[in-house]
Design a protein around this nucleic acid. Structure first.
Lengths: 204, 204
DNA sequence: TAGATTGTTAATCGATTAACAATC
DNA sequence: TAGATTGTTAATCGATTAACAATC
């Protein structure tokens, strides 16, 4: 495993992986840094440089074997295995996430759903039964779950995060519109559609 | 309006705005670049530098009046007005977005919903009636809508984007797991939870 | 062989940080 | 006045790009 890869490079690999998977679905077998860069709107040099951190995946004069490169990136990102994911929050968003079919084939499986509302606990969402928050510690620890999605109101998101971390979670995808305070060994990614729209209105 | 602000700076302003709104909700009236930086996990120097692109919003020795800074940032980002947003896709995700209460108070209102499935067209989602895709051009043009959210399968996302852009949309929030090709006068932001989880598994 | 594209180095470009005078 | 914090400059740091030898 190469050391000290910049985080910004790691951040682009999933986007490369997604584009390569799409190219493969379209029937391509080989691509080049130039073609991939065109699709993604970034320079070919950046793609070659990013990939070169992990080894020489291409062939001069030819380019990259798509299936091979996909496999390599999946290995680097550690998504050549299935990760179990805990979901907290069984409202509109939580339900939509629970029903979303796009996780499984890209390395993730929702394994359990938690909510605090008594009228939701015990209900079925897809194939899952909503569990009470008090189950978090036990279920997550027992199953060794390391990844969680938070889909609860902002007011309780920090509290939920604290519980998840105490139970062993080390990666959080936070849908609540607020910043989380977490120890340095825990990673957080944020999804806030309003923030992303506010990044565009400036230019309108 | 100051010229040529780096995009990376614009990208942080909504996060500042969100944190400030939260501080205000907690009853604070004044904050400092240091306090804000602590909350967000970034340096105080960066916050001061970012804000200084748009003017001197603080006072030496005191810090920033939160209400005033919120108002300034809302003006800079142009979210001191309400933007009408078109939503394409009335599946699980589209429905969840239509029901989400968090848009209105942060500058955005969903104004119309489109889907292609005959069994969805005409149905009510919240207070909206799902319209057929063929209405896109007319409705968006008539209402002067500039922002759209795409919540359709990846296979049709590019086609939907093309239609939206032809109708006058200039900012797209894309939930479909694929890259969109758009003209340079159109901005796109992406939400793909799998990409964001794949950015974390590398470190687990 | 000729053409194409990689992997890599060095140069450029841009962003972050440290430091401090200004000033509330 | 003394203490605190801004706005800004200059220095540092890191990321992107251009260019090309290597080589398929």
């Amino acid at each position: 495993m190469p050391a000290n890869i910049p985080d910004i490079v790691i951040g682009r690999l999933p986007v490369y992986l997604r584009a390569l998977t799409r190219l493969a679905a379209e029937g391509h077998e080989i691509t080049s840094s130039h073609e991939l860069g065109q699709r993604l709107g970034i320079s070919s040099a950046q793609i070659r440089k990013d990939l070169s951190h992990f080894g020489g995946f291409g062939k001069q004069g030819t380019g990259y074997q798509i299936a091979f490169l996909i496999e390599q990136l999946r290995t680097v990102l550690r998504v050549n295995q299935e990760w179990e994911v805990a979901l907290v929050g069984a409202g509109d968003l939580g339900s939509a996430l629970a029903h979303y079919r796009g996780f499984g084939d890209r390395g993730f499986n929702i394994a359990c759903i938690f909510d605090s509302a008594p009228n939701k606990i015990g209900k079925k969402i897809g194939s899952f039964t909503v569990q009470p928050m008090s189950d978090i510690q036990h279920t997550i620890q027992e199953r060794g779950i390391k990844i969680a999605m938070i889909a609860v109101p902002a007011e309780v998101a920090q509290e939920v995060a604290d519980q998840l971390i105490a139970a062993g979670v080390r990666a959080i995808l936070n849908y609540a519109p607020m910043n989380l305070n977490v120890p340095s060994n825990v990673r957080v990614q944020y999804i806030d559609p309003v923030v992303q729209m506010q990044r565009m209105t400036y230019y309108l």
